[in-house]
Design a protein around this nucleic acid. Structure first.
Lengths: 342, 342
DNA sequence: CCGTTATCTGCACACGTGTGCAGAGGAGTA
DNA sequence: TACTCCTCTGCACACGTGTGCAGATAACGG
């Protein structure tokens, strides 16, 4: 099979302990012996078994990431940041996707636990109380990205974008353009992100002295299809809204697609604002006005925070970290259109 | 720390061997004892250490995946298929991304080797001979996705889409619409996919009796920016091509974006065909005609083939597998336009 | 030449799990 | 009762690695 330090030890005529020390450049081994062994290891194509090492060291140098699906460009961009930061810290990434099935999400967490990852990152999950309890039990730090955890355990923290502020920025932008009837298309039900973006939407309305109308909140699903389906309901409203803020870019893209097929002229007939700023947001027509999330940074920060937590946990310190909230920024493109003339 | 079978053994008043057997439902343990231990394990929140198990069993139940970047939607879709198939087979996925830096790709492979993954899948890499030799040494089956390996080792196979056929279909479609000057925008240099798609392009030209003109092959980079930059060179050609086939959808999207900014009316002034059929291909304007790759299936098949190879390797059999080549299909949308009138 | 010290190496154990083998105990049979 | 056979359990080792400790050897000073 694969060559181990014992094999090297045999060929070098020393014990495996000496080989182990030589390979980690310990000064306890005579320089000459050290170099001889290192050369031999290279020659024999030695590759250390990280699992065996992890077993004795008590750390696997790997971070487990739970996502709903990597096919979501937002998720993919965050993963990019995670992978990057993990790589820099000499950690590797184990991916588990849940396909948004709660049962499978539990399984995923259980698997990562069994793999003894040092750190778990959960990406925009809608976590029930039961699930959160499950997370507690695994005994390693948990960092949630874009998932609010009001009821968190000692080593559970969150890195989120300021959804409420983002929702506020988006809606204020539309208000500023003169819109007075602005719809909101939601994401998946019971997602905390969604609730917060909606809250920001209401903030902006309130600030402008506009009434909040329940009927203007239309259900979506966070994917393109949800946006497409929402158009029908939106057109059925009377009077018809002149603008719409969507839970995310994918929803907005679906809505725009359906609107164009229905013969609407965008943005004149309907101004649209999304959320995320996924890579393709600027390539659709009209180019999408949106709230840019620092996606890669979310991932990076989550890793950094997790590693800091890990260090503190090892020293049995009370974690000094606090939740990180990053602000998105408004990116104005064509889809929100020119100021309304009246 | 975490509870082990020894802890359970102590509480149950038996040896750790008995616990180990009881948890795997071995008939060697009395039914009553078995059930008692299983209940105890559940109560104590036991989670088996898969690393330790892997160490003694000689298999980690994990597959390593090397990608350039997961931010590429094509890659993300394939990953989806990989994760899915791996999950079904009770395998987990370790991700390593190279950012297209050769040095980092080597590191990635080395890391996966050290993690003792049972199987390595490499996604659309441009593999030099040196790198391939490196892959050989790791001793586990390697499956390449969309990377031709003319010079492969005994346990190295490939799952690819029929690039040449795809290139042929795309170009024939344009020829069929009456175009006679058709450009091709390449992907990253030295990528075998690219060479093959180009070959298919030439096949279609030859079939139609059209000359191959080197000047019509323009350099891209496989990303949106490459498409954008290519427009300038394309417009400088004289006479100007009436159609263009792009290495992939991202390139096509960049090209379309730049063309619209330059004031061209698409598809009238320029017909465009892409390759991949990424999720957003149908949402840009004009909707992109493209060659649909069975992305998730590529991933699934790669896992299945890899596991089959693994089984054969374990029995020291000569692998019976052969490379898998899947065909893409032409998806006609608006960007290739109506038949040319002349 | 002897004692002390510095330098290096190996023994033995640990991590958590799986398993061949021996042996204890009970049940059954002659 | 004595022997055999079956059922169950524990011992001991294995996987590949890291490390405290003891001890061997050499170097050095008096």
């Amino acid at each position: 099979m694969s060559v181990s330090i014992k094999d090297i030890a045999r060929r070098a005529g020393v014990s495996h302990s000496t080989v182990s020390r030589a390979l980690s450049d310990s000064p306890l081994v005579a320089l000459e012996t050290r170099q001889r062994i290192q050369a031999l290891a290279r020659e024999m194509g030695y590759s250390p078994d990280l699992q065996a090492r992890a077993l004795v060291m008590g750390r696997t140098q790997s971070v487990g990431v739970v996502v709903t699906t990597i096919a979501d460009p937002f998720v993919a961009e965050v993963m990019q940041g995670i992978e990057d930061a993990a790589h820099s810290a000499n950690y590797s990434v184990i991916l588990a996707s849940s396909q948004a099935e709660p049962q499978r999400e539990i399984e995923a967490v259980e698997l990562l636990r069994a793999k003894r990852v040092d750190l778990v990152i959960v990406l925009s999950s809608r976590l029930g109380a039961l699930y959160l309890a499950h997370l507690e039990r695994i005994g390693v730090p948990v960092v949630l990205i874009n998932s609010h955890s009001q009821d968190r355990g000692p080593y559970t923290f969150a890195v989120t974008v300021d959804n409420r502020h983002g929702g506020y920025l988006a809606t204020r932008h539309l208000v500023g353009l003169g819109h007075r009837r602005i719809a909101y298309i939601t994401g998946q039900a019971h997602h905390s992100d969604d609730q917060e973006r909606l809250a920001g939407y209401r903030d902006a309305l309130a600030e402008a002295g506009l009434p909040f109308d329940e009927a203007l909140v239309l259900p979506g699903d966070g994917d393109v299809t949800g946006g497409q389906r929402a158009l029908g309901r939106l057109l059925a409203l009377s009077p018809r809204p002149t603008a719409v803020f969507c839970y995310n870019d994918r929803t907005a893209i679906g809505l725009i697609y359906a609107a164009k097929q229905a013969g609407l002229a965008l943005p004149r007939d309907l101004a649209v604002v999304g959320f995320d700023d996924i890579p393709f947001a600027s390539f659709i027509e009209p180019a999408l006005t949106t709230i840019a999330q620092p996606m890669a940074e979310l991932g990076r920060r989550a890793v950094e925070m997790g590693l800091a937590l890990l260090a503190e946990q090892r020293e049995d310190k009370v974690p000094a970290a606090s939740n990180v909230i990053l602000r998105g920024r408004l990116v104005v493109r064509a889809s929100s259109g020119a100021p309304l003339v009246r």
